[in-house]
Measured scan of single mutants.
Amino acid sequence: MFYPNSPQTSPQLTQIPYGQQYAMMQRQIQQPYHPFATTEPQARLYPYHYQGPIQQEQGGFITQQSTAASPQYVQMRVTPVDQSIMSGYPNQTANGSSSSSFNYNIHPQQQQQQQQQQQQLRHHAMPVGSVPLQDDRYRKQLIVNYLAPDVTSTDLHELFSRFGELDGARIIYDKQTNMSKGYGFVYFCHAEDAKEAVERMSGYEFHGKWLKVGYSTNPLNIVPSNSSPYVHAGSRGAAG
């Protein structure tokens, strides 16, 4: 039997160049792979992502010199942007860049009308829970959420009447099932009393439920100042 490094198959040491006398086997001759043993700084910083320098080929596509990437890492192929796409944008300079302001050559009167329309939209648009300043009635009506099913309009009136005089209180019921929808409205005579009720009743436990109280901004629920107070009856038909 002959071994790869046996004296019968191995040459004389004098015939082997210096430095390879003890590297006779194939696994010894093959050098191990060192990912950080390279002179390129990109490979030292990113050993798993770097795959060699990027070269520009004919046709405008950018390719990489090395083989496919590892399945664990996804390499994105980048193509140059066609400058003709950006030619339609206004205020574009000769080098292809555009300024931040756009001039669509709008007539001054049209621009003024658009600004007025935007101001009107901001004036009428009102986020949930906010209180408008032009109508004091919005500051007097509250919406009470997360009410228990057994709470009546009379219970709601008695709960909030300790903060001040009320114009009314009612629970909203479903017309088909005649069941409470879980929320109601309270109408105060003074805005200061309503503000105190919002601050003190939010998070209050009532009939096993934690109440959420806020201003009601729905104009359909506003009680006119010259109208008669609501009837605080315990029956659902009268309260709904």
Rank of each mutant, 00 (worst) to 15 (best):
S227W: 01
S97D: 12
D174P: 05
T79V: 10
Q12Y: 02
C189K: 00
H123I: 05
Q116I: 01
H49C: 10
P4V: 10
E165Q: 08
Q12P: 03
Q64N: 06
Q20T: 13
G184D: 14
Q75C: 07
T154K: 07
P224E: 06
S225C: 06
V128N: 02
S180C: 03
G164D: 05
H157D: 03
P229A: 00
Q115N: 04
M126D: 09
V198A: 02
S87P: 12
Q116T: 10
C189A: 12
Q58H: 03
Q64H: 12
T79F: 15
V223L: 04
T9G: 12
N103R: 04
V128Y: 12
L166M: 06
G240Q: 07
L142V: 04
V144N: 08
D155A: 08
V198S: 05
Y48V: 10
S6W: 05
Q42Y: 05
I85G: 07
V128F: 12
L147K: 00
S66P: 10
Q55V: 13
A239S: 11
S228I: 14
Y146V: 01
L220C: 06
G182P: 02
S87Q: 10
I172C: 01
G182I: 12
H107Y: 02
H124S: 11
G237L: 06
H123E: 14
C189Y: 08
Y146I: 01
H190M: 00
Q116S: 08
A23V: 06
Q12G: 01
E192S: 10
Y187D: 11
Y22C: 14
H124C: 00
V151M: 09
G240K: 11
F160V: 04
S98K: 01
F163M: 13
Q51A: 09
Q113T: 04
Q20A: 12
I143S: 05
L159H: 12
H207K: 02
P224H: 10
R27V: 15
I85Y: 05
K212I: 03
M86T: 07
Y22A: 05
Y50T: 00
Q42C: 11
E40Y: 01
V128I: 11
I106A: 14
S70D: 06
G52K: 01
I222A: 03
G96H: 08
I29P: 09
Q118A: 08
I62A: 02
R236D: 12
L121C: 06
N95M: 11
Y46A: 08
E158P: 14
Q116H: 05
L156C: 14
S161I: 14
L220A: 03
Y146G: 03
Q114I: 08
E205R: 07
H123T: 01
F188D: 02
P7Y: 13
P108D: 15
N95K: 08
A169N: 03
Y183D: 13
H49I: 13
Q26N: 15
I222P: 11
P17R: 08
I172A: 00
G60A: 04
F188K: 01
D150R: 08
A233Q: 04
A194P: 10
I85W: 05
S10K: 06
G59R: 05
R170S: 02
G164V: 05
I16K: 04
Y215M: 02
Y230G: 12
P32C: 09
Y187P: 01
S98E: 13
S87L: 15
S97H: 02
N105K: 11
M86S: 09
H124K: 02
Q110A: 13
Y104T: 13
L159G: 04
M76G: 03
P80M: 03
Q110M: 05
V186K: 12
P4E: 06
Q118Y: 08
F185A: 05
Q12R: 06
A69F: 10
A69H: 11
G182L: 02
V128P: 02
N218W: 01
V223Q: 06
H34K: 03
E165H: 07
M25C: 00
W210K: 13
S227C: 12
V128A: 07
Y230R: 13
Y46W: 00
A169S: 04
Q120S: 11
D193S: 14
V151D: 04
D174T: 08
K195D: 09
R162W: 02
P108M: 00
F163W: 15
Q134E: 12
Y3F: 12
D150W: 02
S99N: 03
Q30D: 02
W210C: 02
S70W: 14
F102A: 07
Q15G: 04
Y204V: 10
D167H: 00
E199G: 05
S227N: 12
F188P: 14
H49G: 14
D193C: 02
Y204A: 05
L142E: 06
I172P: 05
Q75F: 12
S87V: 05
Y73A: 06
Y73I: 09
A125I: 14
A23W: 13
G182E: 00
V78Q: 12
S161H: 11
T79G: 08
Q55A: 07
F163T: 09
G129H: 09
L13S: 07
E40F: 15
A94Q: 02
P219E: 13
I16M: 15
Q141V: 09
P53H: 08
P219T: 05
L166Y: 06
G182Q: 14
P90S: 14
T39N: 00
S101Y: 10
S202A: 05
D174C: 07
Q141H: 06
A239E: 00
Q141T: 01
R170C: 02
Y33M: 15
N95Q: 10
Y89S: 05
A94F: 11
R139M: 00
G96L: 05
E57Q: 09
Y50L: 07
P4M: 01
Q176E: 13
L156E: 02
P224V: 00
S228A: 10
Q72W: 14
P35S: 11
T38C: 14
S101E: 11
Q112E: 06
M25S: 09
Q109I: 08
F61A: 08
V131H: 01
P149K: 00
Q12T: 10
T217A: 04
Q21D: 11
P41L: 02
Y3W: 15
D82S: 05
P108Q: 07
Q30T: 15
N226S: 05
I85L: 05
P80I: 13
G182M: 14
Q119E: 14
H157I: 14
Q176Y: 10
T9N: 10
G19L: 07
Y173L: 02
H107Q: 05
G60H: 00
S100C: 06
N103D: 00
Q111E: 00
E192R: 01
I62P: 03
E205T: 06
N226R: 09
A37H: 00
E196G: 05
Q30G: 14
A239C: 05
P17V: 12
Q15L: 15
A191N: 06
L142S: 10
V144F: 14
Q21P: 04
I62H: 01
R236L: 08
V81H: 14
T177W: 11
V81Y: 03
P11L: 12
K209V: 05
Q141I: 08
E57N: 05
L156H: 15
G129P: 12
S87N: 07
T177P: 03
P35L: 11
V186L: 08
Q118G: 08
K212V: 08
S161C: 02
E199V: 06
T39I: 12
K195L: 05
T154M: 08
P224G: 09
G164E: 03
P4A: 06
N221H: 12
G168K: 13
S225I: 10
S10Y: 01
Q65K: 10
S227T: 10
Q112R: 08
Y104P: 12
N105V: 15
S98P: 02
L156F: 09
Q64A: 11
A194V: 02
P53L: 06
V78M: 15
P17S: 13
S66Q: 10
M86Y: 03
H232G: 12
Q64C: 10
S10M: 14
E192D: 01
Q58V: 08
E192Q: 15
G164M: 14
F160N: 09
N218M: 02
N221Y: 08
V213T: 06
P11V: 08
E57R: 05
H107R: 01
E40R: 09
